[in-house]
């Protein structure tokens, strides 16, 4: 009996040995990537502790004194923080209202284009701005929309109209921000819907045709239901990301005369934190944003699953 179990153990050990002999190089390959994730993604998470401390640049995160919830209190008492929170939500909601339905409509339209060449050229051109940085886009926009020298305002002036200060007036800035975002990303965002449309069974269209469905009816009764789940999932996920905002876009487009509507959380954290050296305060703002975003995203995912969709995890 004991001899038998010894043999079993030996067999198991040798089995494990042969497993590692076969796979050690796989673990070796994973070494660098794992080191990357730990050093650059997980170690900074330990720095989050600074939101409960009086961060002192010379002492470092761990040696600085504890401060409790003082930075959260200061953040919630700060007018600039609430302003940036309001602007983040406002601009994202505007993006959702304008930027969400447009790619769907555009994808449906592109799908109806019968001239294949024209369709391909259109796609090629409207996908392009996605690959340009917001700095480049802002450079183009500033020149195009400049109040005196921009080509649009030159036309307006020549036609006898008043020039429009697209980026200099608060209300106009918001609209310009939204429209530039639409211009840059609408084409790119059609890709996912066009892919979903390709996945629709062509027999459904034939059946609809036999039933006498016209072009619009086919779009309404076949294409739209066919991409319904993609629409729902993207809508829910976009709503989950309502508090997250990229840095480059608002930063590249903002200027001192519109900061009241243009300062968002990401630019606030940069300006007050990295430039203003209020590290603990802005780290607290950042943590607040990430935690609330995570709650939103989890809720959104739960909702997606409740609607019978796949969800993102």
């Amino acid at each position: 009996m004991s001899v038998n179990s010894e043999a079993l153990v030996a067999k198991r050990v040798s089995k494990r040995r042969s497993y590692f002999r076969r796979t050690w190089s796989l673990y070796l390959m994973l070494l660098l990537p794992l080191a990357y994730f730990i050093v650059f993604r997980y170690v900074p998470m330990t720095n989050i502790v600074m939101v409960f401390k009086n961060y002192n640049m010379f002492k470092g995160v761990w040696e600085s004194e504890w401060a409790g919830f003082v930075w959260f209190q200061k953040a919630f008492a700060s007018k600039d923080f609430w302003l940036s929170l309001r602007n983040t939500l406002g601009l994202n909601i505007l993006d959702l209202i304008i930027g969400f339905p447009m790619p769907i409509i555009l994808a449906l339209l592109l799908n109806e284009v019968v001239y294949k060449r024209l369709k391909r050229i259109t796609q090629t051109i409207i996908y392009l701005p996605h690959f340009l940085s917001w700095i480049i886009i802002s450079g183009i926009a500033f020149q195009l929309l400049a109040p005196k020298s921009g080509v649009i305002n030159t036309f307006l002036i020549n036609a006898g109209f008043e020039p429009i200060e697209f980026l200099g007036k608060e209300s106009l800035w918001i609209g310009t921000y939204a429209l530039l975002g639409l211009w840059k990303e609408v084409g790119w965002n059609t890709i996912i819907y066009l892919a979903a449309i390709t996945g629709i069974n062509t027999e459904l269209y034939e059946a609809a045709e036999i039933d006498g469905a016209g072009r619009f009816q086919k779009v309404w009764h076949v294409t739209l239901p066919g991409i319904r789940s993609t629409i729902i999932i993207l809508l829910i996920m976009n709503m989950g990301r309502i508090l997250g905002i990229e840095f480059d876009r608002p930063f590249a487009l903002q200027n001192s005369s519109v900061m009241k509507v243009a300062d968002v959380i990401s630019t606030y954290v940069y300006r007050v934190g990295i430039r203003g050296l209020q590290f603990s305060l802005t780290a607290a703002v950042g943590l607040f944003q990430s935690v609330v975003s995570l709650v939103f995203l989890t809720t959104a995912n739960w909702l997606a699953k409740k609607f019978g969709e796949r969800g993102i995890w």
């Binding site: 994730f37 650059f40 900074p44 720095n47 934190g273 990295i274 780290a283 950042g286 995570l294």
Partner: peptide
Amino acid sequence: ILIILTMYFNAGTIPNYIL
């Protein structure tokens, strides 16, 4: 899981800067 989690939670601008 270790890798996917980093897609949904980022330490944030300031903790990354401190790193």
